[in-house]
């Protein structure tokens, strides 16, 4: 068994698919996996693949042409998953897609398809939660700044939404689990950048602690609830505790 490994970013994954495919070892004799590899297996041969933009473009073009745009979106979303087997699942989906064509996205009965759908479902759900529960705070520079700690790499799935919502504001969303940020300068496209610990603490240090709207929001949040209907369990079901850590209204 040959295991093709690569870094956990989209370009590396696409390159990895390219190399694995071109190696012509037979689909059942190979596996694809993103690093880190937690437990290397004794009888496997590991083969590390470095990102290559030309190969990436080729893979993307073939997926869009030979399968469909819809399939490409599925693959992109699945690639943002935290699932350690995602790359292999995507590879199997691509293999099936190349032979089945655009029909593949409705072939739910096939495991190669349904497992990629399942990845999509989970990521889309999480991304949706963040559209709802993200909170921006103001920095002294008036930039709107938000911190999230998502399981999946949802930044590129939510940034377009916020670009549409606030096209003419300066804002950034930081994924603390990955030290990755989506930065949106007013009236421009957003870009991704990784942040060093130093940069991070610098930004954190410039939070505007005087922002009056923080306490105004807490006031509103508190008075919104009807006492005679108090129901914490129901609240917890809709708004799981894990999100509250970074939500303004739940800060002391």
């Amino acid at each position: 068994m040959v295991v093709f490994t690569c870094k956990d970013d989209f370009e590396s994954m696409m390159t990895c698919i390219y190399d694995a495919w071109s190696a012509r070892l037979g689909h059942s004799n190979i596996r694809l996996q993103t690093e880190p590899i937690e437990m290397p297996e004794l009888f496997c041969q590991y083969c590390y693949v470095e990102a290559d933009s030309e190969k990436t473009q080729k893979v993307i073009r073939s997926i869009q042409k030979k399968i469909s745009m819809e399939a490409y979106k599925f693959i992109y979303t699945a690639a943002m998953s935290c699932d350690t087997d995602k790359l292999d699942k995507i590879y199997r989906f691509v293999v099936t897609g190349f032979s089945a064509g655009s029909r593949v996205t409705s072939m739910h009965g096939i495991p190669a398809v349904s497992s990629v759908f399942e990845l999509n479902r989970r990521i889309t759900n999480e991304a949706h939660h963040f559209k709802e529960f993200i909170r921006f705070s103001r920095l002294e520079t008036q930039v709107l700044y938000s911190v999230i700690e998502p399981q999946n790499n949802v930044l590129t799935l939510i940034a377009p939404y916020f670009s549409d919502r606030m096209p003419s504001e300066n804002w950034m969303v930081l994924d603390r689990n990955r030290n990755l940020a989506a930065v949106h300068p007013a009236d421009q496209n957003y870009f991704l950048t990784s942040l060093s610990q130093k940069e991070l603490s610098f930004i954190e240090g410039t939070k505007d602690c005087q922002d009056p709207y923080v306490s105004l929001w807490k006031t509103f949040f508190f008075f919104f609830s009807v006492e005679a209907r108090t129901n914490y369990r129901c609240q917890r079901n809709f708004l799981p505790l894990k999100f509250r850590k970074n939500m303004t209204e739940f800060q002391p």
Binding site: V226, R229, Y232, Q235
Partner: peptide
């Protein structure tokens, strides 16, 4: 879009005043 849930479990979507 629901942005938060109040202690009574109701969704907060708009600034209702």
């Amino acid at each position: 879009i629901c942005h938060s849930f109040a202690a009574d479990g109701r969704c907060i979507s708009l600034l209702k005043v």
